[in-house]
Each structure stands twice: as C-alpha cells, then as structure tokens.
Write a protein that binds this DNA or RNA. Structure first.
Length: 282
DNA sequence: GTGGCCCTGTGA
DNA sequence: TCACAGGGCCAC
C-alpha cells in the first residue's frame, strides 16, 4: 500500500523522531523480517542514525556505527509500518523488529522504533553502504519520477519495444519507481489513457503528458501526507488525506467525476483497475 | 509476457 | 466461506 508519497511522508515524519539518536540494540521478533544482514546486528550497537531518506518505495536509514557505516533498508510492502514509542511499550501482535533507541551510544533506551507488519511481506535489510551493489532489487530500480523531467519519464516508460500495456509499464519499478496501483490508475485517468492500452500505440507526446500528470499527482499526494485506504499511517500515527481526491481508484461502478459515466472495473497487469471508458482512450 | 505465491484481515 | 486487497519474485 505505501507507494512513493506514503513512504516519503513516513520518512519525513520519522526523521524528527529518530535523527541523531543511537541504536542500542535490535530485537528480532520475526527472523523473516530481517531479510538480509542479520550477521551485522551486533555491529548495530551504538550506531547513530545519521539520516532518514527514501529511494523508490524503500525507506533508508544511514547509520554511523562505531566500527563501520551501515545502511538499513525497509520495504514496507502492503502493511509495513514504522512507529516510535516510549521505552517500555509492549510489542504489538504484528511487531516484527524493535530498535531500542537512546540519546547516547550506550546506556538506557528512551524510545523504541517498531517495525510492524500484519501481512509479513515487508522486510528490513541491513548492509554496508557498498553492499547495495549486491542487492538485485536495488540495482534494477528505475528513475525517480520527482527527480526527472516528464520527457525522461516518457523515455523510461517506452524504453523497451513490446506489447506491454501502459499500466504494467507504470507499475514496473525497473522503469520508473514508486508507483503502485493507486497512483497508476489515478495518473492514467488524468492523462486520459486507458490502463489496458498497448504501450506501443501511445504517442511520445501522450507519454510526456502522462509523466507530467504523474508528477502532479505525486506532489499533491505528498502535500496531503499520502493516501489512507485501510490502515496506512505515517510514523506519527496520522492518516493521509489524498484518498479524498481519488477520481477512479476504488470507485468502480460509481459515476466518473468528469463525465458522470459509470466507471469500469477490470483486471490489468494482474491488478484491480478502475477507469472511465469515456474519458480514457487507448 | 502471465499467474501463483507469500500472508492476514475484511466484507459480502 | 471465499474473493479480494497487492509488491515483488519465481516458475512457466
């Protein structure tokens, strides 16, 4: 569920709570949640959280550990959450990792950073900064849509000659990162392109227009602190507001906000998809 | 390229 | 009871 705007919001709300704090230790409640780098757990002790940032849908913590720099990468997938609670807070039913934080490299913890994940698809990956090179997923990530021009987005989307449908290309993290089901449907609606339109049939000018609409939506969603469908919350427990601006996502069978025609539901690229047959063309 | 799988909770 | 939610991976 957390897509680019939600992960960006989590990074922004998490940063003031953990920046410059020290990790005293990490309590692994679910080994599966520590996807890689468990052997580096001892090196975490006394690591200062020097930075909180986002790349694609990944939330990254830059760590200045006593012996070496480290990098913690979290993929929240659908239901992963990061929260900071006072020391002594009991784990939740779905808590997977608990990082004890303090204001000094050693001593008493004053707060706990929880990684909770109901559906257990999310993970944390602990590595040395140069170790990202050994992470296939990282190596294949495409361009950041908010650090690119609409033309660059269009190029990345059309990058490969194929009969791929446009929505599959938008969801493909190897082309443009950060887009999930919500923002794919919303961007395609605004750009007036059917989700099942073959990529090869869409002119470059329309792809540039799609890139422009995508950037606008992502920026609006970040400004609204993301979208909360069921249970997305930022690192301070607040819901986003962008779900109130959805024009198609989750509105199958309801009237199009532009033309009042009934919105269509379909399955495209293996995902539930909603679009307007009148406003969106191949 | 497509579809099953991972997994839990929700709603019909 | 069962379809569905869906990001990424894997087998086909």
């Amino acid at each position: 569920m957390p897509e680019l705007p939600e992960v960006e919001t989590i990074a922004r709300t998490l940063a003031p709570q953990v920046q410059d704090k020290y990790i005293l230790r990490c309590n692994v409640l679910s080994p599966k949640a520590m996807q890689a780098g468990a052997e580096l757990l001892p090196a975490l002790a006394g690591a200062k959280i020097a930075g909180v940032r986002r790349r694609a849908k990944l939330l990254l913590l830059d760590l200045a550990a006593p012996s070496q720099p480290l990098l913690a990468g979290f993929h929240l997938k659908m239901t992963g959450k990061l929260f900071v609670h006072p020391a002594g807070t009991e784990p939740h039913k779905h808590s997977k990792l608990i990082f004890e934080l303090g204001s000094a490299p050693a001593g008493e913890a004053d707060s706990l950073m929880f990684f909770d994940d109901m559906r257990t698809f999310g993970y944390c990956r602990l590595m040395r900064p140069e170790g990202v090179k050994d992470w296939p997923f990282w190596n294949k990530l495409g361009i950041e849509p908010l650090l690119s021009t609409p033309e660059e987005i269009a190029l990345a989307l059309q990058n490969r000659a194929s009969k791929t449908r446009i929505k599959a290309a938008l969801l493909d993290q190897e082309r443009v990162v950060g887009i999930g089901n919500i923002y794919a449907d919303e961007a395609l609606f605004r750009a007036g392109i059917r989700p099942d339109a073959p990529l090869k049939d869409i002119s470059f000018a329309r792809l540039v227009n799609l890139g422009r609409n995508l950037q606008e939506i992502l920026q609006e969603a970040i400004a609204a602190c993301g979208s909360s469908i069921r249970d997305y919350r930022d690192a301070q427990g607040n819901a986003g507001a962008f779900q109130n601006n959805f024009r198609v996502y989750g509105r199958g069978g309801q009237p199009c906000k532009t033309c009042r025609a009934t919105l269509s539901s379909a399955r495209v690229a293996g995902r539930g998809t909603v679009f307007c047959e009148h406003c969106q063309k191949a």
